[in-house]
Write a protein that binds this DNA or RNA. Sequence first.
DNA 1: TTATATTTTTAAGCTCGCTTAAATTTATAT
DNA 2: ATATAAATTTAAGCGAGCTTAAAAATATAA
Lengths: 219, 219
Amino acid sequence: MNNISQEDYLTAIYRNLDDSGEIKPNLLASKLEISNAAVTDMLRKLSRDGFVDYQKYKSIKLTSEGESYAKNMLRRHRIWEVFLHQTLGMPWDKVHDEAEKLEHSSSDEIINLLEEFLDYPEVDPHGYPIPDKNGKMKKNKAVMAITELSENESAKVIRVNDDVKNLLSYITKIGITLGKEIFIKDKLEYDGSVLIVIDKKEINVSSKIASNIFVEKIK
Amino acid sequence: MNNISQEDYLTAIYRNLDDSGEIKPNLLASKLEISNAAVTDMLRKLSRDGFVDYQKYKSIKLTSEGESYAKNMLRRHRIWEVFLHQTLGMPWDKVHDEAEKLEHSSSDEIINLLEEFLDYPEVDPHGYPIPDKNGKMKKNKAVMAITELSENESAKVIRVNDDVKNLLSYITKIGITLGKEIFIKDKLEYDGSVLIVIDKKEINVSSKIASNIFVEKIK
DNA sequence: TTATATTTTTAAGCTCGCTTAAATTTATAT
DNA sequence: ATATAAATTTAAGCGAGCTTAAAAATATAA
């Protein structure tokens, strides 16, 4: 229904780059929930406008211009999220969608004023770092997905993927919030799921969900 | 460059209705700074969607659905203006354009939360009343344009048209803000301009500008 | 290596909001 | 009342972003 703009493409590309800084059109299309053909179309335009390096049938890279554009959108997005959650009290599983809309309609001036008003927050409500005016982001600590932990290890939740539909509201239901401590009681080989302890309750979490919750080990 | 949506049309129609609750396509086109043809086009769509009463070559009326839609956009717009000005400290001559963008990207939920955060403001930074959730607005007091005042009358500024390009920044330069007292020293017949006294300084204001500054008489 | 599956691109066509130019209707002025 | 001016609509066309269907290229697997 709603059209997706160049800004959305750049953000989605940046969010989903692989280890070598690339992304395939097919993945991009599925993230944006549009056809591959639409992606091809837009890639030609983004390439024409100097935001991506693109050659037929090849993976996509961002140019430095494209990258700073995307980072700025991420900055806008995350600052809005902090405002919505912290100032207006909107639940953390709702702020992503709202910020997605606001980020396109706000000048850098508004964002800078908001940032000041919020006293220069470093992370958004899901634990993602907020780029500063120059695109610099705080390096994450030793962050790992729950799936990478071993049995009998304890860890603290410091980031949750906000990009996956319905993940947050489910996670909230089972009691996970930022800063919460968890304990790995068991790892099930055959389906990759993890038995974790939160607030003294035992919960089995599927590998798909566990891989989107990021923690810091506690020794 | 930027496309104007149905929402903008409805707001512009509502803002510029004449005394009998109508507006002509030509005026609408000039307010929106687009061609008459584009207006004709959109009117058919707005009519199809039940927001306006429209017949070829006739003036436009809003349906009740169109009116409540427009009022809600006005509500969004003005609440954003209050936030930008009051909370973020953005100057009153800049908030209109920024709010124009934000109003399209904000759910009613955000607006309601913002309204609460701002402690239910009654007017925007230019003195316009803010409709409540049900579309109800405080009736204005005995508001009149400066041009309607007589010589030797004093008045207090309570509203300034925010819809006219560059008007606000000019008005600010000559020292007019909400609440400021002015005195009508002279009215010049031949060009309709007014000689007013503000802060003990005498300023000649053209009729075009004076007609967009609204005041309340002081006895 | 070759057959099959998947990904990507091309082609044709849609809606939306816009433009200019020409045709038509309505308003104004003498 | 009629000529002229202004407002409005119609027509043709454009760019953006989308779709589906078919063609071409690349990846995978036997």
